[in-house]
Amino acid sequence: MTPDEARARFRSGVKEPTAGWSAGWTQANLIALPRDLAYEFLLFAQRNPKPCPVLDVTEPGATSSPLFSGDLRTDLPGYRIYEHGELVAEVDDVTDLWREDLVAFLVGCSFTFEAALLEAGVPVRHHEAGSNVPMYSTSVECRPAGSLSGPLVVSMRPVPAGQVADAVRVTSRYPAVHGAPVHVGDPAALGIRDLDAPDFGDPVEVRSGEVPVFWACGVTPQAAVMRSRPPFAIGHAPGHMAITDARDSDYLVP
């Protein structure tokens, strides 16, 4: 399915996690903030490049970009609306909420390297289960920038112990979409108490002989919004991504 075809389906009301959609095309997180916070967010992203790798930034009020030729207000399968850090709505269309002062940021997504993991023989459990990837807020603090601060959010994929090195090798070649894992093994080291209770997404089974592997996650900007409480923000529903016009191979390094 091409990005245009996928976006048309979302625009018509299809709402589901996008892992596995439009194979070969890059997916991205969305965070849209008022213009007066745009510099602070760029600084926050520069200081925290693992969870916040910025792929594109719009002009204030713009509803598309060179990386995303669709409509950012309608062409994602789900959005979250924040007021003063509180989640006030989850909707499938933000046309009536989009403002002329909003600057939209497209942030790299780990779904981009999942096809490469599968090609290397590394299982991706949420694909097998037909569910969303589990995501967790951690006890690791991001570097603050101006009024913005918050915890690192991670996604988790169980990997057979003998294939962890393969998972690290494969994903390290995609630094613009989170790259190599930030942690392998004990969830408690990240302050995660229960893998079966993710903060975002769905839990997945960790089988005998498997190790939980954690990657930085592009939901981190929304965690910063919840902590820092700006007056208004729009994000994607976690796991319900923007499917861009870029190819996964554009972000592969030798």
Rank of each mutant, 00 (worst) to 15 (best):
L43G: 06
D202E: 13
M156H: 06
C142H: 02
V124D: 04
E16I: 11
S64N: 14
R9E: 14
G239F: 00
A38C: 11
A167S: 07
T2H: 13
V206Y: 04
E5S: 14
P49D: 05
P134Y: 06
V206H: 11
D93E: 05
G218R: 00
L102C: 09
T26W: 08
V124E: 04
T220L: 04
V94K: 01
P231Q: 13
P53H: 08
E59L: 15
R80Q: 13
L55M: 13
V154C: 04
L152W: 03
Q46L: 14
Q27R: 05
M241A: 10
V204M: 09
R47F: 05
F214S: 02
S139Q: 12
V107I: 15
A23E: 15
P187I: 12
P160R: 03
S139L: 12
L67P: 06
P134V: 07
C109P: 02
I31G: 00
E5C: 11
N48Q: 08
L76V: 05
V253E: 13
A38M: 09
S110M: 06
V54R: 01
I234Y: 02
T63D: 03
K50E: 13
M1V: 15
A145Y: 01
L42G: 12
H126R: 09
F41V: 10
H240T: 11
W98H: 12
R169S: 13
F68A: 03
K50Q: 13
L148E: 02
L55E: 04
S69R: 15
R73W: 01
W25I: 09
I243F: 07
P230C: 09
G162Y: 08
A6C: 14
